[in-house]
């Protein structure tokens, strides 16, 4: 249950980037990776509470789940249903995980 801490960090980061325009914040677009360790519902709940505290209860939150993907040492790129999904070409687990690890603030929309 670290989603509340994440939510605080997200709101702080947005505030740092928009400065005086925080009151115009309308939508937050985010991506949550399959292996990020963050639960989307809990993160959304935490964000709503914090935004309410900041007098921004109408801000919309759009969170897109991102599946995990990897590139195998044999160069095959593939999506992982689970971490135990081996390379579909060679059956190996020798790979780099290329996406699905992070929680990203993609963009924000500000009202005029």
């Amino acid at each position: 249950m670290h989603e509340f801490a994440l939510a605080q960090d997200i709101v702080e980061t947005i505030a740092r980037n928009v400065g005086d325009e925080m009151s115009k914040l309308d939508v937050i677009h985010m991506e949550v990776g399959q292996f990020s360790g963050a639960v989307i519902d809990s993160l959304e709940f935490g964000l709503k509470i914090i935004l309410q505290e900041k007098n921004l209860p109408a801000v919309k939150i759009n969170i897109v789940p991102v599946p995990a993907a990897a590139i195998c040492d044999c160069k095959t790129e593939y999506e992982l249903d689970s971490i135990m999904t081996a390379c579909p070409s060679c059956g190996s687990f020798q790979r780099q995980i290329t996406s699905g690890k992070d929680v990203i603030i993609k963009s924000i929309e500000l009202k005029d």
Partner: peptide
């Protein structure tokens, strides 16, 4: 309406 791309980690402050 204005869109601002951030592409920042949610842990930016911690980071």
């Amino acid at each position: 309406m204005k869109t601002q791309d951030l592409n920042l980690s949610a842990q930016e402050s911690n980071q």
